[in-house]
Nucleic acid binder design. Structure first.
Lengths: 238, 238
DNA sequence: CGTTTGGTTGAGGTCCATCAATCGCGGTGG
DNA sequence: CCACCGCGATTGATGGACCTCAACCAAACG
């Protein structure tokens, strides 16, 4: 059950046989509650287990100079530190966003599973490649877009990723993200993020109350953000 | 011989046996000359072969809105589109920087090699993970650093990566990068890049004439850029 | 209730973009 | 050989996007 979203995610990325799904579901995982702002894995730490999001959200943040930069958000089904299986130390803190439930699988278990299956190895590899593709979009976003487009793009991406795991309800999703998180993810100041969000609201593109974000005009928003969701699944060759 | 730098690169990332090195060297590769500015692989294109840099440089660039953003530079030994093996379409143009020689290996050949070796698969996977780690640093750089630090960081990274493949000569390296490339990589205007480089020169940190870049005070430069090269090899667990 | 946290607003300043012009250099063709 | 051209580097002036500081508000919470 806790692996459900994770399997769904992998499934969206690579076709899995029923047997393979069973093998993944059989991975021994320990569940754990993570509080808002709690650090699951610390920068520099060498993980011996892989974490996956069961419920809620995580993000990765890194101090650079005197400010902190968010490198990635993680939604249910994501395995944020899969790369620690092969490349050891974390290059950022992994932090809970709102009350969250994570599962953890021992590296040894995962290695054993992957060593036995070329196809599953490929699926997990693909998973890390999609993470990389997302990072590359973030580079484009941070390097070349104006504040309004940056924030719009972030919202579009989160909505699209949540949709993949069935957590988008009619353009609406729940995420306890504060304006500080948006600022740290977009490389903007809080004040300017605030004004930017107001502008998005004013244009009737989004609604955002508490932890509920709604895309009022998804099409318009995507155009503004120059967003296309293709990179999130790594469109397979047919 | 053309595979030499590529093997050196892999070797730096994961221990290879002599047999494995031989297997890689035996991969049938076609060499090709690439002119400055020539597009090797176009955004949206589905590659059927993986390219690696034998001599010279490549970079990946993507149009976003009305400007172009460079997502990555590639030095000899790099395999810029290894990810196309599993995730199909290119999300950016792959372009030659200066006169360059690239090799190309068919996906089918590569797949065959990897399917036969768990260890080599791991080595190549690691390779993509290091690319991802670099992307993440770029996010931090673009999101959280000022112009001076951005440019300094880029130079530090290039120098460190070239050092890994033996192309750094006493803090000196050859790279036919223009200020426009720096601007597109750092999300700055050309004019401002020009002034930033002047400032770096003025502080006695670098020298840059034509295509020769020299780190005059590497330690100072690294401090300014908040740079540490750890992420480039994915420091292995011991 | 006081305190904290996140959101909001205003004013002023700065970093960087944009526009425009110049300069040096290598290439090219007459 | 030299005028011409194009590209990259450089410089100055001006403007704008965004930052910083500071204050205030509302809701949540002990």
């Amino acid at each position: 059950m806790p692996h459900q979203k994770f399997i769904a995610r992998l499934q969206a990325v690579e076709d899995l046989s029923e047997d393979e799904r069973r093998q993944i579901a059989a991975l021994p995982a320990t569940l754990r509650q993570v509080a808002d702002g709690e650090i699951v894995l610390r920068q520099g730490e060498t993980a011996s287990r892989c974490v996956f999001v069961v419920h809620g959200f995580l993000y990765q943040t890194r101090i650079v100079g005197d400010r902190s930069q968010i490198l990635a958000f993680h939604v249910p089904g994501d395995m944020p530190c899969l790369h620690t299986l092969l490349v050891s130390p974390m290059d950022a803190d992994l932090v809970g966003l709102g009350p969250t439930i994570v599962g953890a699988v021992a590296h040894s278990q995962l290695k054993q599973l992957l060593d036995g299956s070329v196809h599953l190895t490929r699926a997990f590899w693909r998973e890390t490649l999609i993470d990389a593709a997302i990072s590359r979009r973030w580079i484009a976003r941070l390097g070349a877009q104006a504040a309004l487009a940056k924030v719009a793009h972030l919202i579009c991406e989160l909505a699209a990723r949540l949709e993949l795991v069935g957590l988008l309800d009619d353009g609406c999703f729940q995420m306890p993200m504060t304006q500080r998180h948006v600022a740290d993810a977009c490389g903007l100041s809080i004040v300017h993020v605030n004004r930017t969000i107001q502008e998005l609201r004013h244009r009737g593109l989004i609604a955002w109350e508490g932890s509920e974000i709604e895309l009022l005009q998804p099409e318009e928003l995507r155009r503004l953000a120059d967003f296309a969701p293709d990179y999130l699944t790594g469109a397979r060759r047919t």
